[in-house]
């Protein structure tokens, strides 16, 4: 059922040339994928896909549509070559799948080689009940540093391309939605709750789904809502742009600094065992610090990207 929905969404998205509808379909597609991930017991992935795919990506796509055009031009292209390429690729995929281990087979090599240690020993070795967190932050912590660098790179790239432009539309105190007292109060309370939730996600990642990345995204969302209701200029007074840059860099320094600290203590880069009086304690501390680093950088970068998009004018509105 879910799978059919996904397939239909994808097909409809191909055919529509109203890009607004396509973006909405993309949001639905991501959301359905997140549900599918839940069914597959990938809670962390589901959480992230919902926040990123259905959240951030969709918002960015909508911002782009605001700056470009809503409707796609009528098709003038010959679809034969692309269809051929896709056909060959699909054939290769199907061919490869024919010898794949059965879905869910506990004897598949994937579950037999590396995974047993992560499943059986990581809770004692690293001391974190959420195995995804211990693999992500400790065993494969270097990949995660790379991941933070990827998002930081994206932030720099967007800044290089769009810059942060401040226009006259963003005078202080100008409200984006309306000057309703009720709305303002409700939103302020709501934002407080969102932030609280973000903190919970940040620090509860050891035990349940969540972690620095998801927390950063949620925290950024709180500011985006503040932006929408109280106007961008006000929001920027709360969190000035140049501070975001510093925060983004700080997150990376915190992450890599944790790694460097273990180097100074005579261990390998990112070997947190060096940080505490016993290895498990060190792992705990290390994971806490690097997750915080991830959260800070992700928050700052996502908000910067959002500001960069929302600060742009449509070309026909530029006088």
């Amino acid at each position: 059922m879910l799978l059919t929905c996904l397939a239909i969404t994808a097909l409809v998205a191909i055919r529509r040339n109203d890009l607004f509808a396509v973006v909405m379909l993309f949001g639905i597609y991501s959301f359905l994928t997140a549900v599918l991930f839940m069914n597959l017991h990938a809670v962390d992935v589901a959480f992230t896909e919902a926040a990123v795919g259905a959240g951030i990506s969709t918002v960015l796509m909508l911002s782009t549509l605001r700056l470009t055009k809503r409707y796609e031009a009528a098709r003038r292209r010959n679809p034969i070559l692309p269809l051929l390429v896709v056909g060959v690729t699909g054939a290769a995929l199907v061919y490869g799948m024919l010898d794949a281990p059965r879905f869910g087979d506990p004897m598949a090599p994937v579950h037999q080689h590396m995974a047993p240690r992560f499943v059986q020993e990581s809770p004692t070795e690293v001391g974190v009940p959420n195995m995804v967190t211990s693999v992500l932050a400790s065993y494969r912590g270097y990949d995660t540093l790379g991941e933070v660098m990827v998002i930081f790179t994206a932030g720099l790239a967007v800044l290089l391309l769009l810059g942060i432009r401040e226009g006259q539309n963003h005078r202080l105190g100008r409200l984006a939605i309306g000057d309703t007292l009720v709305l303002r109060v409700v939103v302020k309370v709501l934002i407080a709750f969102i932030m609280l939730y973000a903190l919970y996600v940040q620090f509860h990642g050891d035990f349940g789904a969540g972690g620095g990345f998801q927390a950063g995204v949620i925290f950024a969302t709180a500011f985006v809502i503040y932006d929408l209701i109280f106007g961008e200029a006000d929001a920027r007074r709360v969190m000035p742009t140049h501070w975001l840059g510093r925060l983004a860099a700080m997150g990376i320094f915190l992450y890599a600094g944790t790694g460097v600290a273990s180097m100074f203590l005579g261990h390998a880069f990112l070997d947190y065992s060096a940080l505490g009086h016993d290895p498990v304690h060190g792992q705990h501390l290390g994971i806490l610090l690097i997750e915080l680093g991830v959260g800070i950088t992700v928050f700052a970068v996502i908000l910067t990207i959002f500001h960069a998009f929302s600060g742009m004018r449509r070309p026909d509105q530029v006088s």
């Binding site: 290769a92 995929l93 061919y95 490869g96 799948m97 024919l98 010898d99 794949a100 281990p101 598949a108 090599p109 994937v110 579950h111 037999q112 080689h113 590396m114 995974a115």
Partner: peptide, 28 residues
């Protein structure tokens, strides 16, 4: 990864010969 369960290159090199005669590896 599906056929070997590992991501390390040397480990992959060691574990591949056992499964190299499969469609999946050829597609990969």
């Amino acid at each position: 990864y599906m056929m070997t369960g590992t991501l390390n290159m040397d480990d992959l090199a060691q574990r591949l010969p056992a499964v190299s005669d499969t469609n999946t590896i050829r597609a990969g």
